[in-house]
Simulated assay, not measured.
Amino acid sequence: MERGIIVAFLQVKGGSGKSTLTQNLAVSFVHSNLKVKIIACDIRQRTCSKWVSRRNEYHSDKPKIFSSIQVDDLKNSVIEDSKNYDVVIIDVQGSDSKSLRTALLISDIVYIPFTPSQNDVEVIEELYGLLEDTQFQNNNRKTFYILNNCSVHYLDQSISDAELFFKDYTHILVPSQIRVYNRKVYKVASSEGLGVIEMNDLKSKIEMLNLKKEVESYV
């Protein structure tokens, strides 16, 4: 590939953990000596941009991650950045927007995070038509659903219930092999401008390094 990988995290609703996944995937890649840029599409909350600012201010010893905010001209910005960066990660705001539709058209890999609850997974019905239409226009795109903020309780059935629900959508959505669990370390790392692979929590490190491997396996 003559350009960098373009990865997007998107949803039509907030609270799915897009920004946390974006931050941690970026850190996982930058520790492999790759040049990484995050493009944030939410000009109001600016979650990833603020995280990058904290990282650059307080952790100058850590590998640098670049970022910008882009809403109006996402396509041209991402395509241009992909010529200069090994990995470009788009953090799309949680709504049906022009940025979301553009990300579906230009990304190599798309992750749609869902909390494994009935109210959350049913949002796929809002996305279904968009995914189908844009897959035809971007036929090389891999589109995954990823279960995020999963319960760590071994008796919890929400993961298996969600996976059963998504079986009706496997022609348009590939199940990610990675499950991301509800661990305090994700919030702590984000507040400090770090990624979990830079913290002392082995389970979360494994989750994010495996997510990186999954992305690499489809490039």
Rank of each mutant, 00 (worst) to 15 (best):
I159C: 09
F136D: 11
Q137S: 12
D72L: 11
D73C: 08
L100I: 00
E132P: 07
D168G: 09
F66W: 07
K98S: 12
E80G: 02
Y169N: 13
I65E: 01
Y145D: 02
K50G: 14
L100H: 01
A103D: 04
K62P: 01
S117M: 01
Y85D: 05
E57C: 06
I90Y: 02
T102I: 13
I79K: 13
C41P: 04
H171G: 13
D96F: 09
D72P: 03
Q70W: 02
D161Q: 13
N56K: 11
I112D: 00
I38P: 01
P63Q: 05
R44T: 15
K142C: 05
D91A: 02
L105S: 12
C48D: 10
Y58M: 11
Q45I: 08
L74M: 06
L130A: 10
E122Q: 14
V71K: 10
N140M: 10
C48I: 03
N148I: 03
L104Y: 05
V78Y: 04
Y154H: 11
D72C: 05
R44P: 03
I79Y: 12
H153V: 09
V123K: 08
L164N: 15
D81F: 03
F144E: 03
Y128G: 05
I146V: 05
F136W: 07
Q45W: 06
E122N: 13
Q157H: 14
T134W: 04
N56C: 08
F144M: 05
D133E: 15
K83N: 13
D108L: 03
F165I: 10
I172K: 01
D42R: 08
I109R: 00
I124P: 03
T115A: 07
E132M: 10
Q137Y: 13
I159L: 11
Y154C: 08
S99M: 09
I39D: 00
V52G: 00
P113I: 01
T47K: 08
A40E: 14
F165G: 07
L127H: 04
D96P: 03
S158Q: 12
S67V: 10
C41F: 03
I39K: 00
L164M: 14
E126S: 14
A162T: 05
I90V: 11
D133A: 13
C48T: 10
V110P: 00
Q45V: 10
L147R: 01
D120M: 04
N56I: 01
V87C: 04
L127C: 05
Y145Q: 02
D91L: 00
S68W: 07
F144A: 03
E80K: 10
L147A: 00
D86H: 10
N149H: 08
I146H: 01
I69A: 00
V121K: 00
T143W: 05
T143G: 04
N84V: 01
I172C: 04
S49W: 11
R54C: 13
K50N: 15
D120K: 02
I109L: 04
H171T: 15
I39A: 00
D73S: 15
